[in-house]
Amino acid sequence: MHHRTVEELMTRDVVRARQDTPFKELARLLEENDITAVPVVDELDRPVGVVSEADLLRKSADQADPAGLAPEPHLESRERARAEGARAEEVMSAPAVCARPGWTVVEAARLMEKRHVKRLPVVDEADRLVGIVSRADLLRVFLRRDEAIREEINRDLLRGTLLLDPRDVTAEVRDGRVTLTGIVEFRTQIRVIEQLCRGVDGVVSVSGSLTFRTDDTRDAPDGRT
């Protein structure tokens, strides 16, 4: 199976800012390039942070309400310093959370979820910026055609990896939902097949009515499949 990598999905022509880029220039970069965040790099083009719309809006949120209706914002000292910042290095979220080009979609998605970020600068072996990948980029794997998913499962997975006879097990795919039908030799194979199918890029769900010839779970201490 071929898992799509960050390198295949990332944007290569990355808009970037320097650590001394002024606040208004940051706002202009986001507006003119129709983006929501920009990585901040050092003199060696290594990401040191990211400036997002949320980082810039912190300055507006820190302002007192001219009408006196909204309560005065109460920010921690570090957050207040960022709200009052005038350059990229003062307002950015740091350190930059980065990905590698060879990572799979799963690896990148898990890091985004863990670190609560919406995009990842992509760096090479020298930690230089080579791209950026966003949540929207990762979701592109779910735009794969059903025919491509079905061919990968039937040809590469069921026949190639598991060496199953095409007369025994087949997969149908509709809107990314995989339906498995057929019979396998052992009951424990069913779980393995389903898990492997879920790992195919673009698969939304896996279901079916696979049956087995031999129940090889009877000897297991807990009876698990």
Rank of each mutant, 00 (worst) to 15 (best):
R213N: 06
D156A: 08
R224P: 12
V51T: 07
E113W: 09
E185L: 11
G208D: 04
L44D: 15
A61H: 11
R218G: 08
V178H: 06
S209L: 07
A108V: 09
R167K: 12
I35Q: 04
S52T: 15
R135V: 07
A27Q: 11
R155M: 02
H3F: 12
R119E: 03
A96L: 10
L75E: 05
R28L: 14
W103G: 01
I193C: 02
V173L: 06
D124G: 11
P39M: 05
I153N: 03
E76Y: 04
A220M: 07
R150Y: 09
I132Y: 03
R119G: 00
A81F: 04
S60V: 15
A70Y: 08
N154H: 07
F212M: 01
L44P: 00
L56Y: 13
V130L: 13
E152C: 07
I193F: 02
S93I: 06
F212C: 01
A109T: 12
Q189D: 13
V51P: 01
V204T: 10
A54E: 14
S209K: 12
P66E: 00
Q189F: 06
T181L: 14
A136G: 09
L139I: 11
A171Q: 06
P71Y: 13
R110V: 15
P95C: 09
R150I: 07
R78Y: 15
A220P: 00
R135S: 05
S93V: 05
R144N: 14
A64S: 11
R174A: 14
F142Y: 15
I193A: 03
R191A: 11
D20V: 01
E185K: 12
R100K: 14
W103T: 00
R140Q: 13
R144I: 07
L163S: 10
R110D: 14
S77Q: 12
V204Q: 10
L196P: 01
R167C: 02
M112W: 10
P101E: 10
A70V: 13
E84V: 00
R87C: 03
E194K: 12
L26H: 06
T161G: 01
R167F: 03
E185R: 14
R174N: 11
L196N: 01
V91P: 06
D124I: 09
V178K: 02
S77T: 12
D222G: 08
A96I: 07
D201H: 08
D168N: 09
T181R: 15
R16K: 15
I35C: 05
G68H: 11
G68N: 12
G131S: 07
V91R: 01
D219A: 13
A148M: 12
T181M: 13
R191E: 12
H2L: 14
L163W: 04
A94R: 14
L120I: 09
R12N: 13
D42E: 04
V38H: 02
H2P: 08
R135A: 04
S52P: 09
M1L: 12
G223F: 06
E43Q: 07
D215G: 03
C98D: 05
D55Q: 08
G131I: 01
T211P: 01
G49C: 02
I153Y: 08
F142D: 10
L9S: 03
G68K: 08
Q19S: 10
L75T: 01
A83F: 07
I183F: 00
R135Y: 06
E7I: 05
N33E: 09
